[in-house]
């Protein structure tokens, strides 16, 4: 558009990465195979790492290098590795049944993206960071992950949805405020990691109890 000044290259790159992040979220929403889901999650982590590092370089915010490093270690290597190991040990490679069929899910996803952009509009207008246009995307990633958690009936995809939601939140923090204070980010990373380990243990116990990781079995505790 002619009314706007041309964005510097790094800002354009970051916008591109944000768009890829959104695309990956949609890909996750439509993906049926668990292995591919984990790979998509890993790709999401990699994009997050690249964008955080780029913001750090562009704005000279040193603590963001550390967050980028945490992202790299945690979301590109450690968590996907744990997940891959888990599904190998649990031997779950089957296709995922979704509760709502995928085209419908995609349509709902589109609505959510529009909703998120609208919600983010007044806040983006206030943001002074180079990334303000990406706040809507961050919100959309959170919403899409939420949708994924709702529509999947297996335990592992639900957890991937949960982790992807955390990715969206992290992206929101970087794009709106150049990240949270270091001590908070460390705490969040620790919580996510510990949570993942606990869930890993859980998977085995759920399977031991029910011979399946289908959370439909986890619907006994209902109100009469």
């Amino acid at each position: 558009m002619s009314g706007y000044p041309a964005l510097p290259v790094y800002a354009q790159t970051i916008n591109l990465l944000a768009a890829i992040l959104l695309l990956l979220s949609f890909a996750m929403l439509g993906q049926r195979r668990i292995i591919s889901l984990i790979n998509l999650f890993m790709a999401q982590g990699a994009v997050l790492f690249a964008s955080t590092a780029l913001v750090a370089a562009a704005t000279n915010q040193h603590h963001l290098y550390w967050s980028a490093l945490i992202t790299l270690v945690l979301k590109v290597f450690l968590l996907p590795w744990i997940l891959h190991r888990l599904i190998r040990r649990l031997n779950v490679k089957w296709d995922i049944e979704t509760l709502i069929n995928i085209p419908t899910t995609m349509m709902i996803g589109l609505m959510l993206v529009i909703f998120s952009f609208n919600l983010a509009l007044p806040i983006s207008a206030l943001a002074g960071t180079i990334l303000r246009s990406t706040l809507g995307i961050a919100m959309a990633v959170v919403m899409l992950s939420f949708l994924m958690m709702i529509t999947r009936s297996k335990a592992v995809p639900q957890v991937i949805g949960f982790l992807s939601m955390e990715n969206g939140l992290f992206f929101a923090a970087t794009s709106a405020t150049y990240g949270m204070p270091m001590v908070v980010e460390l705490g969040i990373a620790l919580d996510v990691l510990v949570g993942m380990v606990i869930l890993g243990v859980f998977f085995f116990q759920i399977r031991e109890q029910f011979d399946s990781l289908d959370i439909h079995h986890l619907e006994k505790l209902k109100e009469d």
Partner: peptide, 17 residues
């Protein structure tokens, strides 16, 4: 037990979200 795992799973996911 099956019921306690279910309760804990629900607790984790709902409170996590």
């Amino acid at each position: 037990t099956a019921a306690s795992l279910e309760a804990a799973w629900k607790y984790f996911i709902l409170c996590g979200v």
